[in-house]
Design a protein around this nucleic acid. Sequence first.
DNA 1: AAGGCATAGCGTCACGTCAC
DNA 2: GTGACGTGACGCTATGCCTT
Length: 440
Amino acid sequence: MAAKANENTYILQETQQISTINSNNNPGDDDTASQSTATPADTKQLVYEPNCNRLGPTSNLHQTGFNYVNSIIGSGVIGIPYALRTGGFGFGVVLIVLIAVITDYSLCILVKAGNIVGVNTYQTTQAIAVPQAGGGVSIVQLLPNQPNVVQSVIQPNQQSVIQATGGAQTVQTVQLPKGNVILLKGGQQVGQGSVIHSTDTDTGIHHGVQILSKGDDGSETLTPVIFEDESRKRREILARRPSYRKILNDLSSTEGQSVVTAIPAEIKQEDDERDGTTTIQVGGQYLKVLPASAIQLGSQDGTLQGIQTLTMTNANAGSQGTIVQYATQGQDGQFYVPVTVSAADLQAYQIRAPSQTSITQGVVMTSTGGLQGGQVVPEEASKKRELRLLKNREAAKECRRKKKEYIKCLENRVAVLENQNKALIEELKSLKELYCQKAD
DNA sequence: AAGGCATAGCGTCACGTCAC
DNA sequence: GTGACGTGACGCTATGCCTT
């Protein structure tokens, strides 16, 4: 996809927070790039992020000026980040090159000390940065192989303009106010997952960069740019296998939800308003307390069908009740028998088996901790294993439930962000129209 | 109706993490 | 070090949908 001539507009909005770009994660890289450590002797170096979302490789640096960046070819269209050490500037800033592949063309964004200083779209881009007295890159020339030239005048912390002349894929106007939204027009595309290496050592705050691409058909896509350190954090989080309990606890705390805690340490109780039953937590498990009247051994039609095992384990040394687990051909489950129920009473406890299951295997009842109703007393090892399996079974259920809830949360968040993106696009539209009117 | 396929849910195992 | 817990991975089963 070739960018149409004179139809490229880049607008940055809001304060770009990238003030120091500190690359890392490059195997073998000494990772010393910073504003204070880079020296003119430093070789300009692209630092490759092996784990970043990127396509293609090819970056070659030239000692003169900026760097030489080959475009990355790929129909997938993806942002490709490289951090630069640019000691050649004499003041040791670290720059970023973000390449957004546009099929055969690339978008090159150079970020210096809080400002994006150069934007270009060429198949191959070569840039020269000229430092100015007082610090900062004030003039940037992007010199592609083709006769396209982009010149920019960058003033630190001020709106800057880059202009280009000539060539079929000329960038005509690049505006760089304090901002972080890049608007592309003229059929350009920027893929998801673009990454910018950044570390704001002063504030630690990163504002998301979003790239708005406008297609030939008028469609617009706003693409968030993921900062490298955010990406790294995400990878770290993923590597640590986050606990959905923690996630959901966070969600619960933010959403004002609470957990019942007014029950003694070992057993927590809460009432389920949905079905009127009571749920207790025993050693981390959540079990439903069933009154004798509610428990019937046998299906609704009175036949014993489907239950293969009925296991009773006393998780609390017989002082607080017994966990009863039943296994059927179709569905397993468990419930909690309070301590007030005697062994004789237990005879009255019956399992309300799922209606779709059938009981033909007989019932095996085992118990520990004083209840003598069982027919088989398992050995210690098998008892422990049974308990472990029981707990793990419940834990797996809980984990899956939380995972589903978490995924729903993410989906909701996606919907919210999509709406926000739409709103931002509309805002950009209106601002752009306003700007054009004033320009006229 | 039968078979194939995709999907969801479950139980279990293995492993990492954490608290003690 | 050890046990408890959470979670990914794997295999199995049930269910629904589609095709033949």
